[in-house]
Design a protein around this nucleic acid. Structure first.
Lengths: 206, 206
DNA sequence: CTGTGTGAAGGCTTTCACAGCC
DNA sequence: GGCTGTGAAAGCCTTCACACAG
């Protein structure tokens, strides 16, 4: 499967299709047209079909897509089929909220450990995920072959922590710190910056 | 100032430039070249210059940009110059973390009130922001002329709450609920979907 | 006749190349 | 000489139009 040449935006949309398919499946729907699925996902039907053709042909002409089969295929493409271990670094407000949230597991992710500069002070919320000292970060990632990390540390610490994560073998980082982090080409970073999102919205209110 | 025709991505980048400029300002830097600022923001210098020309000419050839002046201009473009009131709906894990976070104010936003279906049960964390019952949402938004909202309710409630917000006059929504919400054309929605971000990353780890 | 798959066209964004100003 | 501003070119993504399968 060609991991390059497929628009990044298509990959994003696959996740959205996947969520819609899961909902359809829960409702016992067996078949869906590109028109209907696209509407649920908030895109045009031609775009949905184009996105899918990057990975093969899954539909039946005149009928539509089999919900179960398409969902399975997308899951394979996205690598959802085995539980993916994730570490979270930075157990402040946002970090602890994400730990408590726990809704990742349904999507194929498990936060196996969290790390913080003051690990003892953070245990209070009594969640099941262990909160460990930063010194244990690199060995833990290495020993457990963790490939993904969620970064919720303050901006000044972000680059340093990212370096440590990458050094230990992490290949993908979801960055909530309000700063740009520099990474080697083979590492992927998605950034979610709350302030940027709000500012962007504020531009659009006249 | 033409509010249309300017790429949405440029607007996003303006926010990022703004953050870099603020940091420069704190460090007492007075002048910055497009090259240097672009590097800090993680983009190419030509793109930075192109982005800025959508709004006018701010640089001095041979010298660069005045940090203070450029920051002020971008602030005006983004509408940051007066404190923007925001409401938050859904005081669960994520919602209460965002309430406690409070770092918006520096960027020109103030969460003036939060709303939840079970407001009494949510007050525990003792933050300064009042948590009110859902019934008070529409009157509050109307009376305080609130234009922006942060949505952190469970997916099944998202559309209904969005409708109420829009009905009361909200023009921009930052949506953290894992679902697509339908809104009229004149309303802007930015969605942040944690699971989608993680899934997208997981595609890229081979 | 319904609905998918897809080459081609169109539109949008980024990058280039260089003119222009300090 | 250094660095910005910008039309033109390139690249990327979306949309169209329609062939084709059930």
């Amino acid at each position: 499967m060609p991991r390059i040449d497929i628009p990044r935006k298509s990959i994003y949309r696959l996740s959205i299709y996947q969520r819609c398919l899961q909902r359809l499946r829960e409702n016992g729907v067996e078949t869906v047209s590109s028109e209907a699925l696209a509407k649920a996902a908030g895109v045009k039907s031609t775009q949905l079909r184009k996105d899918l053709t990057y990975f093969g042909q899954f539909g039946t002409r005149g009928l539509g897509y089999n919900v179960e089969a398409l969902s399975t295929t997308i899951g394979e493409v996205l690598g959802q089929n085995k539980l993916q271990p994730v570490v979270l670094v930075g157990v402040g407000n946002l970090g602890s909220a994400l730990l408590r949230y726990g809704g990742f597991r349904k999507e194929g992710f498990e936060v196996v450990a969290a790390f913080d500069a003051a690990p003892e002070g953070r245990r209070r919320d009594g969640g099941p995920t262990p909160v460990l000292a930063m010194a244990k970060l690199e060995p833990f990632v290495r020993e457990n072959d963790v490939k993904m990390a969620i970064l919720t540390v303050p901006a000044p610490a972000a680059q340093e922590v990212a370096n440590a994560l990458i050094h230990a073998g992490v290949q993908a980082i979801l960055n909530f710190s309000p700063t740009i982090i520099d990474v080697p080409d083979q590492v992927v970073v998605n950034s979610v910056d709350l302030a940027v999102e709000l500012e962007n919205l504020s531009y659009f209110i006249r």
